[in-house]
Design a protein around this nucleic acid. Structure first.
Lengths: 106, 106
DNA sequence: TATATATATGATGTGCGATTCATATGTTTG
DNA sequence: CAAACATATGAATCGCACATCATATATATA
């Protein structure tokens, strides 16, 4: 029981940790609009290719994005079922409790 | 516009970063049951007092917990409005996409 | 099959956040 | 007002996650 809750906490920690990164947040937000392959993500974000691949791997491992092979391209899309509504919820939280942060104040 | 989205991404990063920590997750989960003062949190978690205070400060800054002074005690409670349903959403995500992580597999 | 293109993977140095220790501040009670 | 209790804060060390660079793998096309 205690062991299980530790493992569970760790899963949560990793889940949040996955989104606690500016690059990955930008990538996810880019993918929210439509599925893109790696090169397209690089173009749109200005990020380097290997960095994007590393981060996509993390996102995929945590079920936040899915990948689909098309020829030599790999198209990534965001998990519509859970991540999209989750981000929506956090939008609301932000507006109400983190406005000073969202505005860049400290 | 681009500046704003950067700041917004940063707010999101900090939000997730706040929960991407085992100690804080344990503290939040402890508080989900009922409001507690710092000493009580220390007792229940086995954590050191200063560590708990540091982490509570972070949690409070991000609107995840609220504090109420009662004499020499400070009672902390979790944000029922946003954090509670958010954790519920993530429960669902975990069950479906992170079962291997939740089970401790790699 | 050789070359180009697309993507993934491995190794490494580094900055940042977390814990810990020490101490300060605030509050109550004798 | 002094002593005890409750909590906050500052400083410092340390581990880990991230970006980067170099390279490997996979696929397409000439």
């Amino acid at each position: 029981m205690f062991v299980n809750s530790c493992i569970l906490n760790d899963a949560y920690r990793m889940f949040f940790g996955t989104l606690a990164n500016e690059s990955r947040l930008i990538i996810v937000n880019t993918l929210r609009k439509k599925p893109l392959n790696v090169s397209e993500i690089c173009e749109m974000t200005g990020f380097e290719q290997s960095m994007v691949s590393h981060n996509l791997k993390t996102l995929e491992y945590h079920g936040m994005v899915f990948v689909e092979k098309k020829g030599k391209y790999r198209y990534y899309k965001v998990n519509e079922k859970t991540i999209q509504p989750l981000l929506k919820l956090i939008d609301d939280h932000m507006k109400e409790y983190c406005c000073k942060i969202a505005k860049g104040e400290r």
